Simulated scan of single mutants.
Amino acid sequence: MKKYILFDNDGVLVHTEPLYFKANIQALKKFFDVELEFEEYMKIMSEGTTVWQKALDKGFSFAEVEIARNKRNEYYQNFLKTENILIDGVKDVLKELSKDYKMGIVTTSRRVDFEIIHKNLGIVDFMDFVLCEEDYNFAKPHPEPYLKGLELFKAKKQEAIVVEDSTRGLTAAHKAGIECVIVKNEFTLTQDFSKASYFIETLKELKTILN
């Protein structure tokens, strides 16, 4: 029986992934005149590698990449503050689930970005904890983030379930030995989800699976 739910953030609870992609596109183009194709970006995200390798391969230095990375972060934060990132019905679903389950967020987002995203949404009110990039040594697809989530809950693997929308997150959950639900996201639709235990169209279907 499931007692704990570990949610990914971007693409599951909020609609932010296209904005991060757009910020990377702009920074690579502005500083290095490098194009970033969607399929290429999906591969990078799935493997947990870096978009900046394209610049390094062209001979740009790590110092130049760091300047571009900081600008990318500025672009992204501006998008977060000005674009609509809400996913319909998420807060209502979490309110209902909180009656029967303990919940946490496990994200690869930086804490500063996460706090901008969730400043006025009320989503974190339903969570026991939030793990961001700074809270573990190895990011997804490494299992450490989800294993740390289990540790905080003092939960057994079979008592928990992960909700993800990407291959990167699914791989992390699978390596951690935790069942994973994939929620449909148009942005990550082309990725390989063959290791997932369940598939849902929206979070509203999650309780049906848990029951």
Rank of each mutant, 00 (worst) to 15 (best):
N24M: 13
N24Y: 10
N24S: 15
N24Q: 14
I25V: 15
I25G: 07
I25L: 13
Q26L: 11
Q26A: 02
Q26C: 01
Q26R: 04
A27C: 04
A27V: 06
A27S: 00
L28M: 10
L28E: 08
L28R: 08
L28C: 09
K29W: 09
K29Q: 13
K29L: 10
K29D: 12
K30I: 10
K30H: 07
K30A: 06
F31V: 05
F31H: 08
F31I: 08
F32C: 03
F32A: 04
F32W: 10
D33I: 04
D33V: 05
D33C: 03
V34Y: 08
V34M: 07
E35Q: 11
E35A: 10
E35P: 01
E35K: 11
E35S: 12
E35R: 06
E35D: 15
E35L: 11
E35G: 01
L36Q: 08
L36E: 07
E37Y: 11
E37H: 12
E37G: 06
F38R: 10
F38Q: 09
F38S: 00
F38Y: 15
E39S: 12
E39F: 07
E39N: 12
E39P: 13
E39I: 06
E40N: 12
E40I: 13
E40C: 09
E40Q: 14
E40Y: 14
Y41C: 06
M42V: 14
M42E: 12
K43F: 12
K43I: 13
K43Y: 11
K43T: 15
I44V: 11
I44E: 02
I44W: 02
M45L: 13
M45A: 04
M45Y: 01
S46P: 03
S46A: 14
S46G: 03
S46F: 02
S46D: 05
E47R: 02
E47F: 00
G48D: 06
G48C: 02
G48L: 00
G48M: 01
T49I: 02
T49K: 01
T49P: 04
T49N: 02
T50I: 07
T50F: 10
T50Y: 09
V51W: 05
V51N: 02
V51K: 00
W52L: 04
Q53C: 02
Q53Y: 11
Q53E: 12
Q53L: 13
Q53N: 14
K54H: 15
A55W: 07
A55P: 03
A55N: 01
A55C: 10
L56R: 11
L56I: 11
D57E: 15
D57K: 15
D57G: 12
D57Y: 12
D57R: 14
